[in-house]
Design a protein around this nucleic acid. Structure first.
Length: 599
DNA sequence: ATAGGGTTAG
């Protein structure tokens, strides 16, 4: 830290007359001690609904058992299930609720192993299957797209009269949501119809069905299904909840016209809108950049004496800010103050963002002061908006000033903060600072990633420091990062031009040991073909290209979010192999037909 | 987990 600070002063002498020096004092006023790095992690298995019910029972699964079985499964994964079952029996391990649950978590991608484990546990007399464990088997099977096994499990447990202790409405909820997620709309509907023919749970499940379809991007189908039911029973009036679900679906799909039609229909049918309805409308209109209309809805809501909260104020304040109407946004916040919930961190962050976007840093820091006076602490998101501004306008010095202030005040920058800072420093050619920030980022527990590594290496190339670039390249690979092909090419070209063929060969060796594509952005190929590596403005455009490319490579961690944003023309999502499994274990969508008993 | 609920885009 100290060396970083000194070198910073050497490279960028502090300028007390900087336009943005007022920022220097803002963040430090909420001085607090640096939060300790959490060392201990929870050792216990995640609590499940069933285990919390018997809180006093000693956890009944040992890590050794889990390891033994995991090991067994790994070595058996090509041998048919029957032999696996006997192998499991030979271990002599008694299945328990938690052990089985833990195994399911590990097996979510392998339906066959899942099935074996389930059968192994299920045949033991000491093992009793609870409804929630049963549903989690169903869930795991469906997640692995083995709907057929899920159905056969259900049919095994359903009595001839259709009743069952295990098969409940929740079971079908799981099934329906999973079908919807897999894009199998017809199967989702069939599952719903099957369930409702046996159970008296139609209303709740209908909501589940429509909600699942809407959330997975099938609003039209959801809406058509509702219409069909209305035609079947002309007296039927859909619940507010159903209207809300569909309204939300239309807005998510950015179909304003349809949303408005439904809203009209709702009024025609005298279905009284709820707070959720108003919230959905307001948020929806704001997202469609129709703040004006959103504010009309707000007035209507007031007339209806509905309680107004951050659910309606936040989108409007953000909408006004996005439209550059910052004074009105502030005015709206005044109204917000008098309501019970009052402004939240989201409100302040949104205002800070839009003041920064408008280039009004003074306004932004006033918001900052306001929020801290009200006891709301800024989050990394808050100050990232400032960094965004500094990075965009090449205000490296101001950016670094802010960075040091934050560190001194005990704040913890996040990954995005470091991305912005590194971008700023690399574009500005501040090599030694960039190297040190990179180091500090590591020390603070944020692992360097493809993006920061790429920026750093490309800077080295720009500075004709190809040997150092190679060194960083190797380091990155050792940390498990696969550099982009363009990065390799840049170093390779540089080394060859400098006559360092031996090093170039080593570089080539490292690269070919890595799985990689050989695609290059067009802009790069043009430049390289036209002129050998050198300095000049066009080199800079390469850097920009490379950064843009690595931005694209950022993987969305949560597939649900992709689904949420789907249909938005302003969002470009590459639905390719990069969208593979994440923590939740949801598989990539692949069109796939099921041969469930219903299809 | 699921009726809205948030985070940064040219």
């Amino acid at each position: 830290m100290n060396s970083l600070f000194t070198s910073f002063r050497r490279i960028l002498p502090l300028n007390p007359n900087s336009h943005h020096h007022f920022l220097l004092h803002k963040f430090s006023s909420s001085r607090r001690s640096s939060p300790p790095i959490p060392i201990q992690r929870l050792q216990q298995p995640p609590a499940s609904p069933d285990s919390t019910r018997h809180q006093l029972t000693v956890p009944d699964f040992s890590q050794t058992d889990l390891a033994t079985i995991s090991n067994l499964l790994e070595n058996q994964n090509v041998i048919p299930g029957s032999s696996l079952e006997s192998a499991l029996n030979e271990t002599g391990i008694e299945p328990s609720y938690q052990l089985v649950q833990a195994l399911f978590d590990r097996l979510s991608s392998s339906p066959m192993l899942l099935h074996s484990v389930f059968k192994w546990a299920d045949t033991k007399p000491t093992f009793t299957l609870s409804p929630s464990l049963f549903n989690s088997v169903i869930n795991a099977m469906c997640k692995a797209r083995d709907f057929e096994s899920a159905w056969s499990l259900i049919f095994d447990r359903v009595r001839s009269d259709g009743g069952s202790e295990l098969v409940t409405a929740d079971t079908f909820t799981v099934l329906i949501r999973r079908y919807a997620r897999a894009g199998m709309v017809q199967q989702a509907i069939k599952a719903f119809e099957y369930a409702t023919s046996y159970y008296d749970i139609e209303l709740k499940l209908l909501e589940v069905l429509l909600d699942a379809l809407c959330k997975e991007g099938h609003v039209t189908e959801a809406s058509m299904y509702m219409e069909r039911r209305r035609r079947m029973d002309s007296n039927w009036i859909p619940s507010v909840r159903i209207f809300n679900i569909l309204l939300n679906g239309w807005f998510r799909a950015r179909k304003l016209k349809q949303a408005e039609n439904l809203w009209g229909e709702m009024k025609e049918m005298n279905v009284k809108p709820s707070v959720v309805t108003y919230g959905t409308l307001i948020e929806g209109y704001c997202r469609m950049r129709r703040v004006e209309v959103a504010m009309e809805v707000l007035e209507e809501m007031k007339m209806a004496e509905m309680e107004m909260s951050f659910m309606v104020f936040n989108p409007i304040i953000n909408g006004l800010g996005e439209a550059g109407r910052l004074q009105e946004a502030l005015g709206m916040m005044e109204r917000f103050f008098v309501c019970v919930s009052g402004p939240t961190i989201v409100t302040y962050n949104s205002l800070v963002k839009n003041f920064c976007k408008a280039g009004d840093l003074l306004g932004a820091s006033k918001i900052l002061k306001m929020m801290m006076n009200r006891g709301v602490d800024p989050t990394p998101t808050t100050y990232n908006h400032f960094f965004k501004y500094f990075s965009k306008h090449n205000k490296t010095e101001e950016g670094m000033n802010l960075y040091f202030k934050l560190i001194e005040a005990g704040h913890s920058p996040d990954r995005f903060t470091y991305h912005l800072i590194m971008k700023m420093l690399c574009e500005d050619g501040k090599l030694s600072l960039a190297m040190q920030v990179d180091k500090e980022m590591k020390n603070r527990g944020i692992d360097p990633d493809l993006l920061t590594t790429t920026m750093l290496i490309h800077l080295l190339c720009r500075l004709d420091m190809f040997e150092e670039a190679f060194e960083e390249f190797e380091k990155a690979v050792r940390r498990g990062i696969i550099p982009q092909y363009i990065t390799f090419k840049m170093i390779d070209n540089g080394l060859r031009t400098k006559g360092l063929t031996e090093m170039a060969k080593r570089l080539g060796g490292v690269m070919s040991s890595l799985p990689h594509s050989e695609k290059l952005p067009n802009a790069y190929r043009e430049v390289v073909d036209a002129q050998p590596p050198g300095r000049g403005d066009r080199r800079k455009s390469i850097l920009h290209r490379a950064e843009a490319m690595s931005d694209v490579l950022k993987v969305c961690r949560n597939p649900r979010k992709l689904v949420k944003m789907r249909g938005s023309p302003r969002m470009t999502v590459r639905e390719d192999e990069k969208l593979a499994d994440d923590g939740d274990g949801d598989a990539v969508r692949v069109p796939h037909e099921s041969s469930s008993p219903l299809s």
